[in-house]
């Protein structure tokens, strides 16, 4: 080895600095995730859906929206997709924005494209808010059960037992039936649906989080943090939570998919978001009456729901594979 080479060698490896892994956690994650083509497809569709819901919100709301989902043109009802409007029978303000009915019109002559755009936002918020509620409750309950489980309440029952019994009780209810009952009894509103779906689906997350906390609590790094006098709050949120979050993320992604399906099912049964607001579920539910004359009213929202839910499921499964070190080695 010549002198110059040795110098270069020493410059490249400075041993007094800590040898951190070359790639950050995110890069590692992305490298693994990239190999799963279906999951990438899911992520791509999910971003597309997110953007179109966001754009749809801007284009369809306000007093004078670009695409008016509530504009009724009875003379133009049940036009098939890509039909040209009959310009002579329409007022100038009734002419569709793109001079074409991109996805056809429904039985009241409303533009299905505008209604789909409006409905995308509803599906998105129902999915995210419902899962947000259930994840928050799940982390809270599971964290308490796992971390403070040993504490006794009034000397008879431990916190852990109490919380897990509550979970058992909640699991006894048939979930869709329970949601249907509560939504039917409460006044119809989109917020009630989100809250009810969230309140009836936190049990799985609680169990995951509790199991993770139970095992992580005994690890050395938690003992070290305790020895340093770190507060319980900081141990839970800075030290344990980042290590316990992976299964929660996976189940949340898949939870969004099932929340969107639940909302669509409720809308279909007539308990969903009240009209005139369009959701994919109630476009489909209205369309079923014209299933032979106007199949696009069934197929467009149906396929849209299918694609979005599928993308969430594929993305969630991809996440599960990447975040699970056991599967990683085998694959």
């Amino acid at each position: 080895m010549t002198n110059i080479q040795a110098k270069e060698f020493n410059q490249n490896f400075q041993f007094d600095q800590p040898l951190a892994p070359k790639r950050t956690r995110w890069e590692e994650f992305w490298l693994l995730f990239r190999q799963n083509r279906l999951a990438i497809l899911g992520l791509f569709i999910f971003i597309l859906f997110f953007l179109s819901a966001l754009i749809g919100l801007f284009l369809t709301s306000g007093t004078n929206p670009v695409f008016d989902p509530a504009l009724i043109r009875l003379q133009e009802k049940l036009r098939p997709p890509l039909a040209e409007p009959h310009l002579d029978s329409l007022q100038p303000e009734e002419v569709p924005r793109l001079d074409i009915y991109l996805m056809g019109t429904d039985d009241l002559g409303r533009d299905v494209f505008a209604r789909m755009l409006q409905g995308a936002w509803v599906s998105l918020t129902v999915g995210f808010v419902a899962v947000g509620i259930s994840v928050l409750i799940g982390i809270f309950m599971g964290g308490i059960a796992g971390y403070f489980g040993q504490h006794m309440l009034i000397n008879t029952i431990s916190v852990d037992t109490l919380i897990m019994r509550i979970v058992d009780i909640m699991l006894c209810f048939p979930s869709f039936f329970l949601i249907l009952t509560v939504v039917a009894l409460l006044p119809a509103s989109i917020y009630n649906i989100m809250i009810v779906i969230g309140l009836t689906s936190w049990m799985g997350t609680t169990r995951f989080v509790r199991a993770e906390f139970l095992s992580l609590r005994e690890q050395d790094f938690v003992a070290a943090a305790k020895a340093l006098g770190v507060s319980n709050f900081r141990i839970i949120f800075r030290h344990i939570m980042p290590n316990a979050i992976a299964p929660v993320l996976v189940s949340a992604t898949i939870g969004i998919a099932s929340a969107i399906l639940t909302e669509a099912g409720l809308s279909f049964l007539g308990f969903g978001v009240p009209p005139p607001h369009a959701t994919w579920g109630n476009i489909l539910s209205n369309g079923k009456n014209f299933i032979f004359d106007a199949p696009w009213l069934t197929f467009i929202p149906g396929i849209a729901i299918l694609i979005v839910v599928l993308s969430f499921n594929l993305f969630g499964e991809g996440l599960r594979d990447v975040l699970n070190p056991k599967l990683r080695e085998r694959g």
Partner: peptide, 21 residues
Amino acid sequence: TFLSYLLISIPGFFFAYILII
């Protein structure tokens, strides 16, 4: 695998109408 994801993701009522038609 793909088919089972498809079946999990399809809304039951939509699938029912496709089959009925």
